[in-house]
Amino acid sequence: MLLSNPVSDELKAINLALRKRIYAKEEIRERLARELGRFCRLSHFSQQEAREWAGGREVAAVDGSVNYLGALFPYILCIFRALARTTGGDRTAVTEVFSPLLPHHYRELTDLSREQDLDNELAVNIVKERKLVAFELQVAMETVVRKSPRLVIFDGGFVRYERHAPEAWSRYRQLALEKEIFSVGLIEEAGSFGLGRELNLAHYGNPVFDRELLLGLMEPGECFLVDFERYVKKPAFYTAFARLSRNPQAVAFDFFKEQARYASGVLNYLYTITPAGGRGVPLLLDIVDAEARISDREMDLLLEAYLDVEVRERFFAANRLRRDL
């Protein structure tokens, strides 16, 4: 197929512009090291080292998931599930259903949309995010109280918790700091953390995302530790970057500022429990992720078991079809 000139020209132009955004790796490394922090090599813990680092405590991971049914307000149904589990096999889970079809949930939504002047669908999204975060913190909190692990790994950055559940988050933070429980938030899709901003990189006013910068920047087993006094995202957090496997995309890690000096130890441990050929995520988090998720099939089974055919057909079927499109 021959494309008409304007289209192919523009595609070529885009290609050219994007090529210019690919920065020379050496240059970026050099500037990062000079201006923001330092690159270090991580090392695998031996079993003995890992034991010493953990000091007899376990490691926990926290993850949450939402499944939807329906798309048109108010014929929506969400099933939340949050899970914390420790390496010793201790599990804390919360599963909840949320739907504007239930009067008290409906009220919760309309209150929110009135208060913030939002339409209902947006309000649903916010409530959803809030609930998920709240459940995750709930299970994390219980685990911390009961098990006092060495480390809690969250699936996602700390900003989410702070934004959507500030009170619960601050309670968690306080307890974790008190009990010297390291906490790390792992961000696979490192969006923007201000590395680009700090280096004054911008393109025609477009901000440069950190993920662009970080791709292939580090060797496997390498990390970039920002100087402790700098912060790249939020004053309360300390963020580091590392490439834990052969996957070229680096992962970002949020720590409490107070625990910044433990970051390299935590990263060494995470590096140890990350499969070298995987996508760069510690195995424990993958395990919890798999347990927390409700698969489509499980979802279907649940719905088939508890919703009558007529109810499903009348209120959700058409919507579900739409969702699949």
């Binding site: 813990f45 003995q48 405590r57 490691v59 420790t86 496997s245 990350t274 195995l283 993958d286 395990i287």
Partner: peptide, 28 residues
Amino acid sequence: NRYIPLTTERNGLVDEKVLAGLQAVGYN
């Protein structure tokens, strides 16, 4: 075993050191 489907699906091979690191903190 939960980690075996993960190995095949997404994770590549689970290296010895990963299990050793998890076992050190109580993983069975």
